[in-house]
Simulated scan of single mutants.
Amino acid sequence: MRDGFVIVVPALRVEGMALFPFILVKHESLKYDEILLRHERIHLRQELELLVIPFYMMYLLHYLYNLLRYLDSGKAYLNIVFEKEAYAKEAETDYLQRRKFWAWLNFC
């Protein structure tokens, strides 16, 4: 899954999204954006660790909790524990090779 299954979806409302086992990107050029792809690959690993469906449930619940807490959708999104890990580590080229199981817990 080094390159993953990257699919261009022009109707996507965001630049990229991990939807196990795919990475969806808004534009063809984003298929070559290593930082974006690494960010999404971190999410794929998180999804796999949590057996996919529980990941999506936890992601949504954490977003809703943050929305109530911050009353701001942008802050709610950025403070989802899974996003915190992905943003913090997306620039580290070897991160997925050395990442520990359930590393997202370090970002709670």
Rank of each mutant, 00 (worst) to 15 (best):
G16M: 12
V25T: 05
E34S: 10
I53M: 09
L44S: 09
L24A: 11
N106C: 05
D72H: 11
L61D: 08
D94E: 15
R38D: 01
R41Q: 08
G16D: 08
W102P: 00
Q97W: 08
K84S: 04
V81F: 14
R99Q: 04
L64T: 00
M17T: 06
W102G: 04
Y63S: 01
D94Q: 14
V52H: 13
E47F: 01
N66R: 02
E83C: 10
I42T: 08
N79H: 14
Y56Q: 09
Y77T: 04
A91P: 03
F101P: 05
D72A: 02
E47D: 07
Y63K: 02
K75T: 13
E15A: 06
H39L: 10
S73E: 08
R2I: 00
V52D: 11
D94L: 07
L78G: 07
L60I: 11
L105V: 07
G74K: 10
Y70Q: 08
Y65R: 15
F82W: 03
R38K: 12
N106E: 15
R99T: 00
A86M: 02
K84G: 04
F5T: 08
M1P: 05
H62F: 02
F5Q: 15
V25Y: 06
A86N: 05
A86S: 12
A18Y: 01
R69G: 06
E85Y: 09
K89E: 13
E85Q: 14
D94G: 14
F55C: 09
E90Q: 15
N66L: 03
M1L: 11
L71Y: 03
N66I: 03
I42P: 02
R98S: 14
V14M: 10
A88W: 00
A18F: 04
Y95D: 09
D33A: 06
E90N: 10
E40G: 05
L96H: 05
L67T: 00
L96D: 00
A11R: 13
T93W: 07
Y95R: 07
I35W: 14
Y77S: 06
V81W: 12
L48R: 09
K31G: 00
K31Q: 12
A18N: 07
A18K: 08
R98Q: 13
A103G: 12
L48H: 05
I42N: 08
Q97S: 10
Y59F: 10
C108M: 15
Y65H: 06
M17Y: 05
R2G: 02
Y32F: 10
L61M: 15
I7K: 15
L61F: 10
E28W: 08
W104E: 13
L51E: 09
K26Y: 04
H39G: 05
